[in-house]
Amino acid sequence: MDPLRTLWETFFDWDSMREALPEMLTVGLPNTLILAVSAALLGSVLGMLLAVAGISRTRWLRWPARVYTDVFRGLPAAATILLIGVGLAPLGMQVWGPNPYPLGILALSLIAAAYIGEIFRSGIQSVEATQLEGARALGFSWAEAMRVVIIPQGVRRVLPAWVNQLIALIKDSSLVYFLGLVASQRELFRIGQDYAATTGNESALLLAGLFYLALTVPLTHVVNAIDARLRHGRPAARPTDEIDDADPALPGAAGGSGR
């Protein structure tokens, strides 16, 4: 047989793909989304707490945040997922039964939080100190000024990096298969891999890959659009051309806090 043809069919056997498609759509995709979205939410909340702790003036908050970040960023994701998913399984068994999802989501969140915390922290620290002074001068407490003025600006500056992390999370969600999934718990990767293993043909796995791309690629573009919009305000709020004492504000001097 023509080796090129063999190679082609190993990856692009339409029949194998068609066979796997329904289960990918009805089981794999929802499960991947459940894992990724839950971990993204929990990881972002934890990441924000880490970021704020990381810039705290209190050493007792700063230091644990630092250690946490070093540990969870430094371990391989697979190791963390196994350690938590298997290590805490007896505990989880008593609380919610044999479902590996809660611990899988927890592990994914803890990993993501370490990265997201650093992303948020760098964003928050990039906001000019004059912004804090401006808010404090209006009577805002430190905490309120951070919440209303500093953090929103800081987070906006790092949205693209944050989305990078969400993309990593979507991909890493495939690692929960280590924890042992029953048929209805399988996510995209596991379904693709199972079909590939039983048929000896990689096409189903390639299909799973296409699903991942269909999730991750648009995400990047969506966030870029949101990013642009936040930078310039809603289209309706764009400047009109009436000018009274106009010098068009210097680029980069937005809010007067540049320089």
Binding site: Q131, E133, F140, G255
Partner: peptide, 22 residues
């Protein structure tokens, strides 16, 4: 201090407006 600053308005060289708000 927070209550005091509500009674004392301040205007800065660099304006310190919040750029992410109208």
């Amino acid at each position: 201090p927070d209550a005091l600053r509500q009674r004392i308005g301040m205007v800065f060289q660099q304006f310190n407006l919040f750029p992410h708000m109208s």
